[in-house]
Structure formats: C-alpha cells, structure tokens
Design a protein around this nucleic acid. Structure first.
Length: 592
RNA sequence: GGUCCCGUGGUGUAGCCUGGCCAAACACGCGGCCCUGUCAAGGCCGAGAACGCCGGUUCGAAUCCGGUCGGGACCGCCA
C-alpha cells in the first residue's frame, strides 16, 4: 500500500466529482448524527468532508463511530457534488464531499493536550505549544508558515542563481570570529583545551571565497550568537549571506531590492515600490530615535537644544550642560492624553534608563520655561493647537532610545500605524567609527569595512565624521540585515588598524589568515546578509520569531520539547577533558 | 545584569485589588446516551482543578507578604 500518490484531501474540487479516491489524513471533527456521520479529513493541503452512510457502507459507518480527533485514517470512496444548499463556502473543498465506502484506521491518537481544529496560536499558552511542537505545527496556520518559508528559500535560490551567484557551504565548526557577540563553543576532543566556535556569520569565509575567485557567493546560512533573546531574536537563526566581487553599493542594493520585490510579489502578491529610500544613520537616530525606524507613521523627533540654550528649567539645563541633549516629539491631538497615559509613557522612558518624560503644555515644566522657549519648542516639533509635546533630556544615546520607544508606543496607542504598508529603507551612509564605553575610538561595524576614500582626508581631525561604505536594510521597524564594502588595499587596512590603536600582535592573532590571503590578489568586494527568519515573520504577519522556526528556543534558551540543554555524559566529559566549575557564589566556606 | 507582565480542571478564561458566601464559575474539549445533512452540528447526562512550588501573615488565603521555579515583553547586550 502506498498512499504517497493519493489525491490530497484539501485539493478536491467540483471537477473531481465521480472520481473514486483513496484519501489519507488526520481526523478533524466528527459529527455523528446517529445515522449519517460526517468526518472532516485533513492533510497538509486542507480539509475535506467525508460522509459515512449506513445504507451505502454499513461497515465503514460502524467503524467511523470509533474515530476520534487526530486519528490517522485511510478512506476509500467516491467524490461527489454536495446536494444543493449543503455546500460550504467556508471550505475550499466545500463543493464536494467524499462518500466513504471503506475506512481503515492507520493509527490512533490520544486526546491532544490542546485543540488543533479551529484554534489559533493565541488560543493556547506558548509553553504548551512548544512542549508539543509536533502538534502545534500540525495546525494549518503553522503548516502554512513552514510552506511560506520554503517558498522564500526557493525564490532566494532562483534569484541568486539567475544573477550567477553560487551557493557555497561554510563550516559550522569554526573559529572565534572578530564580531562582537558571545560565541557558542564546541570543545575539541583531539585537541584538549581547545575549542571550535559556531559561526556568528560566515563573514571571514565569504571574504576568502572572494579571494578564491568565486566572485558571486551566497548561502542560506545558519548563524549562532549567544546573546539574550527577544521577540525577534533566537540564538540560532538563518541569514541569506551574500558577497560579490567588483561591485559597489549600488550593485548590492539593486540585487537585494530585486530579491525583495520578487519575494513580496510571489508570496503575498504585493508590489514594492523601487528604489528603497535611503536615510543617513544620524538622521535616523535623531528623527526616529532608532537605527531601524518604522516609517509607517510620521511622528518625527526634533532637536530642542538650540531653542533652550538659555533655559533655566533644571532638567534641561543639566542635560545640556553635561553634553546631553533635549529631544521632543509632537503628538497630534495629544492634549487629550490622560495623566495616567502620560505616567505610563514615563514608565516606558524609565524602563529605558531615562529620567522620565516632560510634556507641554500643561506639564510641570511650563512655569520654568519662557514664552519664547515654549514657542520655540512648538515650532521645532511642528506642534499645532491641541498637540502635546513629549520631551526627554538625557545623554544623547539614551535620549534617542527613550524617544524612539515613546514614539512607537504613541503610534501604537493612537493607532497611527498604517498596517498595510511596507516601508523598506536603506540606512546609508553610516560611519566608520564609534565610541566605546570608555570614550575611545572603535569600529562601528567590523575593522574591514571600507571607508569613503575622500573622507580619509580629515580622519585625524574628525574621525567620527568618516563615512563608511556600510548599510543596513530596514523594514517597518525591523532591522533585516546589513553589510558593507570591504577594504582590499593593504595600506588602507593598515591605516584603519592604526587609527583603532590595534597592536600588530592582536591583528596577527585575530585576522592573520585573512590578511595573509589578501597578499595574493584580492578583488574589491562587498556584500550583505539579511535575516531570513525576520523576513518570513513579516510575510507571515507575525511579530514572534518562534512562529517561523519549526523548533525554536524559549527566551531562556531552552527547548521545552527535547528539554535541551541537558547534563552531558560524564564519560564524554572525561574524554573531552572537561569539568564544570562549581556555581558562582559557591565556595568552601559558604558551602558549610 | 536590570525593569515589567503572567502561572487556577486537558485547553482558554473568571474569581485575586475589596481574605471567609470558592473542595472554585463559564466556554471549549473529554466520556456516555439520543438523533440520517451536519460542517464551531444539536439535545440530555456525566467525569475532571484544593488554584506552579516553598514559606510567612491570619481564627481563616486561589485571594495579602516574601522567596523560588517556569513562560513572555522590554532595557543593557546583539559589530
């Protein structure tokens, strides 16, 4: 018996009427009328109604009485048009039904721990769903996402192939890389005391592939980063990783834009307008308070420092005198915001490490501000009559975070988000250097990012204004990915390392093999990587990355189904030469 | 590392603020019986939770307090 070639339950249509079919699937609902019994039979392609008629097939009808939810069955019968008035327009197969002649139970099921039929993800606690992921995935809603993800992968392969890119696989057992995230380590058995690292991204390998002459590389690559999780972050995730030789930003942009257009068109039937707009990173941080702005609503943040140079309002004075900033945002018609809502916004501000929020008119600061200052604030933020201005004063980075969070919260509360829009944009240009926690010069991306050549003229005087050939792609408030053109001139690379104050030995140790490779004829090259999981999230219309990954981890990085992580086999530990240190805080003294 | 939310039958909720009327209510699901056109089928009957765990307050706690475990959202972190 093989049911592999059998017709799909969900694919039967009026045109199939009269056909004798063998169907395989899972039992959904059973409606037993004493005489007639109806069973919804479900497979990956959908659901069809099977009718058991005691007059037509008494044995099958009798057997159907024992059917329960999620039994796996085989039904033989005839497809026929449903009688007039008994069609079900809710169902793709609703024109027809299958008159069962024979029923075979292939496998029984316990009552599932949660309902699969007519249930959405929101109907069940995620903890339970993840513990029985195989049942959760069985729901049509989830199977559709798996199919969507497959289609996305397929379109990627087609698009990249048509542009003459080839997919090359790179190692999962790799080496600690120069990126900033914490590595997952894999101890080596043959080399005691040494470890492999799981790749955070195939960054170095793809550059080496350019040296190798591959010229156009891509990979749907699994990446691993041991950092704290978020609704859109998992410890292992998938990126479309791309690198090309002899191209510039424009080539990267048009390749990727073309791919996104195709993805949106071929999965959800949406035409994305081209080209994607570009936004300087500094404008993004100022106007939207984030490096991944959501442009589906307006609400722009304004710099208020200039109109407050002489202010005597203490919170503003303090911020400005200590090198901080004051930023404001006009909420259209916001004068109706209740005190309670303002307090809730202030909680969000404090949650981001901020002091709180000021507002006007009607706020506690009104009496400390001059009429001219108030007018200036209103003008800077574009506030009109009936608008409310929300203001944060803090260190620049924190004020940006606070205002960015406030901006998105206001948009959510006031329902300002145009949910049918897809606002892609490139964050470009960005800058080469950033400040680390100690106020020292550090790279904003990674040390191989190519600076804009003409900006190197003032690199000594104004290093922070040196632009980088680097870019991020953002959509609707999500950072989808980013990339850069790389340095291929050893002299320029040398110069950048020097500026960063990296000692020769560190450079050799960390990047030696890459620099060595660069001695043998490096093509100018650059690339990008973007997150497949996040793109599938957007296409699937979910805000939870776990929804688009078959077997995801919880926020505390556990797998509730497999119960991973777990304690290792002591023998294996011995072989690896590993031993766990006692938990922190445990010492001989305190351990009694 | 930090802030916040949640944890009650198989599932989802109510009750918790304003302790006792709660060995806990409702819906779905589950079991049985009836029923030949339903499609969230219908009708009748029935089973099922001492309220995550530990401790405290109290004459008395699902309800208050502390801790802990688990899930989630966010800040830091994630070049």
């Amino acid at each position: 018996m093989s049911g592999f070639g059998a017709p799909h339950c969900g694919a039967l249509r009026a045109g199939d009427s009269g056909r004798s079919v063998e169907l395989y699937g899972w039992v959904g609902r059973r409606r037993d009328h004493g005489g007639l019994t109806f069973v919804d039979l479900r497979d990956r392609w959908g659901t069809v109604q099977v009718v058991f008629n005691p007059e037509l097939a008494p044995a099958a009808h009798a057997a159907a009485a024992a059917l329960r939810a999620e039994f796996v069955i085989k039904v033989t019968g005839e497809v026929r048009l449903r009688p007039e008035g008994m069609r079900n327009p809710q169902l793709a197969t609703g024109e027809v039904e299958v008159a069962a002649e024979r029923l075979q139970v292939l496998s029984e099921s316990l009552t599932p721990p949660f309902q699969l039929e007519d249930a959405t993800s929101a109907d069940t606690d995620e903890k339970t769903r993840l513990s029985y992921r195989y049942l959760d995935l069985r729901r049509p809603e989830m199977l559709r996402i798996l199919e969507l993800r497959h289609r996305v992968n397929k379109i990627i392969h087609t698009h990249m192939d048509e542009n003459e890119f080839i997919e090359v696989e790179t190692p999962i057992l790799s080496k600690t890389s120069p990126s900033g995230a914490r590595d997952f380590l894999v101890p080596s058995r043959l080399h005691r005391g040494q470890v492999y690292a799981l790749p955070q991204a195939p960054q170095v390998q793809k550059q080496l592939l350019m040296v190798a002459g591959v010229q156009r590389y891509y990979q749907i690559a699994r990446c691993f980063r041991d950092e704290n999780l978020r609704a859109d972050r998992q410890p292992e995730f998938t990126q479309l990783d791309i690198e090309m030789s002899f191209g510039d930003e424009e080539d990267v942009f048009s390749l990727v834009e073309g791919l996104f257009v195709r993805l949106w068109r071929e999965t959800i039937g949406v035409e994305l307008p081209l080209p994607f707009p570009r936004l300087n990173i500094r404008d993004a941080l100022l106007r939207y308070g984030t490096d991944k702005p959501d442009l589906r609503y307006e609400l722009e943040i304004a710099e208020l420092g200039p109109v407050l140079v002489e202010t005597e309002a203490k919170v503003f004075r303090n911020a400005l005198d200590t090198g901080g900033v004051v930023r404001g945002l006009a909420v259209p018609g916001g004068s109706d915001l209740s005190r309670r809502e303002l307090d809730e916004l202030a909680v969000i501000a404090r949650g981001a490490g901020g002091q709180g929020l000021a507002w006007l008119p009607g706020g506690p600061l009104d009496k400390f501000l001059t009429a001219a200052e108030i007018a200036g604030i209103q003008q800077a933020t574009g506030a009109a009559e009936g608008d409310l201005v929300l203001i944060a004063a803090d260190r620049r980075r924190r004020a940006e975070t606070v205002m960015g969070l406030v901006r998105s919260e206001v948009a959510r509360r006031r329902d300002l988000i145009r949910r049918d829009e897809w606002r892609f944009l490139w964050i470009n240009p960005t800058y080469l250097f950033d400040e680390d926690d100690e106020g020292r010069l550090t790279y904003a991306h990674h040390p191989f990012v190519r600076p804009v050549a003409e900006d190197l003229e003032f690199v000594e005087e104004r290093p922070y204004d040196v632009r980088a050939h680097a870019y991020d792609i953002v959509c609707n408030g999500y950072e989808l990915g980013g990339g850069s053109l790389r340095i291929y001139d050893p002299a320029m690379q040398e110069r950048v390392f020097k500026l960063l104050g990296m000692p020769e030995s560190t450079i050799r140790e960390r990047f030696g093999y890459l620099l060595e490779a660069f001695n043998y004829g490096v093509p100018p090259h650059g690339g990008i990587a973007w997150g497949v999981d996040r793109v599938v999230m957007m296409l699937a219309g979910t805000e939870n990355i776990r929804d688009v990954i078959a077997f995801p981890k919880t926020q505390s990085m556990t797998d509730l189904m497999m119960e991973a992580p777990s304690a290792p086999d002591p023998e294996l530990m011995e072989e690896l030469g590993l031993r766990f240190a006692p938990p922190p805080g445990t010492s001989r003294q305190s351990g009694r």
